[in-house]
C-alpha cells in the first residue's frame, strides 16, 4: 500500500454535501489535480445531477450499491452544515464507511461527543471536525488542503505534519519545503474540543511506517492532546524525531476564558496551558528525540538539530528580501 491509513492508493472518496459551494469547488479542483480519488457525491434531492465530475446520489445507500462506484467507496468527506454533521456521520458509519473526514467547523460539542463514542464502538477512523483534510504528495489529497496550486507547499519527502490549524498545516509544509524537507503526509486534525483523531492517534498509526523520518506537530492551548504525545513518547510508544510548536503562550497573560482561535483553545480552570504542554514535551525531550521550538519558525532549526536528513536542497536565500518596499530598511 502506498500512503497511510488516512490516504492511500486504495482510497475512494464519497463527498457528503457534494453540491454545496465549497464542496463542489474542492471536488472540481481535486479531480483536476489528482483524478480518480473522489468517486461519488451525495446531496439529497440532487441524485443524478451532472454538475460535478463524479456521479451524484440522493443517499449513500444508493451510492454503495452502485455497480460502478459502490465497491470503491471507503472514505467520506463531510461538508454539511454543523447541525447536520451527526446525521451525515451516522449515514456513513451505517453504510460501512470506515474513514471519515469532517471538514465542517462549529459542530456542537454535544454532537461531537456522540460521534466520538459511536466511532469508538464501530472501530472507524474520523478526522475532525474542523479538519482541512489530508495531503500525501505521493498519492494525492483529500479536501481543500493546499488550494489550487499545492505544489507551492508540498513535495514528496519524509516529514509528517500534524496540526490542529488547517492553515498552518500548509504554511508549515511550505516552510520546510523551502528549507529542503518534503512532506510524507500532512494531516489537519482540527481544533475541536472533542477531537476524533488526536496527535497520539496519528503517531500510533504511523509508528511502523519506514517512510516517516520525523514528525512536526503544531499544538494549541486547551485540552490534553499535546500532553498525551509526551506521555506516549515517554512510555516508548513512538521513537522517531518529533519537533513541536505550541502556540498561545500569550493567552496566559489575558483573562481566563478569552476565546481566540479554535474552540478547543479556550483555557478553562488553569488546565491545558501552553506552558504546561511545552514543559511536558521538553521533559520528554530529555531522553527522547523531541524538540520544542520557541518561535514557530524555529521548527526548522529543531528538525535540523534532531539530525533529520534533508530530502532535497535548501532553496532559501540567506536574508529574505521584501517583494515590494516603500520604506528604507
Amino acid at each position: 500500500m502506498k500512503g497511510t491509513v488516512y490516504l492511500n492508493d486504495k482510497t475512494g472518496v464519497v463527498v457528503i454535501g457534494a453540491t454545496g459551494r465549497e464542496a463542489s469547488q474542492v471536488i472540481k479542483e481535486s479531480e483536476a489535480l489528482y483524478p480518480g480519488i473522489v468517486k461519488a457525491g451525495i446531496t439529497p434531492g440532487k441524485g443524478g445531477s451532472t454538475e460535478l465530475p463524479v456521479p451524484v446520489f440522493d443517499t449513500l445507500a444508493e451510492a454503495v450499491k452502485d455497480p460502478k462506484v459502490g465497491k470503491l467507496l471507503n472514505t467520506a468527506l463531510i461538508y454539511v452544515p454543523p447541525v447536520s454533521v451527526l446525521d451525515a456521520v451516522m449515514e456513513c458509519l451505517d453504510n460501512g464507511i470506515k474513514v471519515l473526514y469532517i471538514i465542517t467547523e462549529h459542530v456542537p460539542i454535544r454532537d461531537s461527543e456522540i460521534i466520538f463514542q459511536e466511532k469508538e464502538r464501530r472501530g472507524a477512523i474520523i478526522v475532525g471536525g474542523t479538519s482541512l483534510g489530508c495531503f500525501v504528495p505521493s498519492v494525492g489529497r483529500i479536501g481543500a488542503i493546499g488550494g489550487k496550486d499545492p505544489s507551492v507547499a508540498f513535495k514528496d519527502g519524509g516529514i509528517v505534519v500534524i496540526s490542529k490549524s488547517g492553515g498552518l498545516t500548509v504554511t508549515t509544509a511550505e516552510m520546510f519545503k523551502r528549507r529542503g524537507w518534503g512532506t510524507y503526509m500532512a494531516l489537519a486534525i482540527g481544533g475541536d474540543i472533542i477531537s476524533n483523531t488526536t496527535y497520539s492517534d496519528v503517531l500510533k498509526q504511523i509508528k511502523g511506517d519506514p517512510k516517516v523520518k520525523a514528525v512536526v506537530m503544531l499544538g494549541e492551548p486547551g485540552g490534553a492532546y499535546e500532553e498525551q504525545v509526551a506521555d506516549l513518547i515517554t512510555s516508548g510508544g513512538f521513537d522517531k524525531p518529533v519537533a513541536a510548536f505550541i502556540s498561545g503562550r500569550f493567552q496566559e497573560r489575558m483573562p481566563e476564558g478569552v476565546a481566540f482561535g479554535h474552540a478547543g483553545a479556550i483555557v478553562e480552570r488553569g488546565m491545558g496551558k501552553a506552558t504546561d504542554k511545552i514543559s511536558r514535551l521538553e521533559a520528554a525531550g530529555k531522553k527522547h528525540p523531541v524538540k520544542v521550538a520557541f518561535y514557530y519558525h524555529d521548527l526548522v532549526k529543531a528538525i535540523e538539530s534532531l539530525g533529520v536528513p534533508r530530502d532535497f536542497e535548501d532553496s532559501t536565500a540567506e536574508h529574505v528580501k521584501p517583494l515590494y518596499s516603500t520604506i528604507q530598511r
Binding site: S165, G166, T171, F260, Y296
Partner: peptide, 9 residues
Amino acid sequence: TFGGGGSTV
C-alpha cells in the same frame, strides 16, 4: 491577521 492558527502564532 488571518486564520485561527496563523493569527494566534
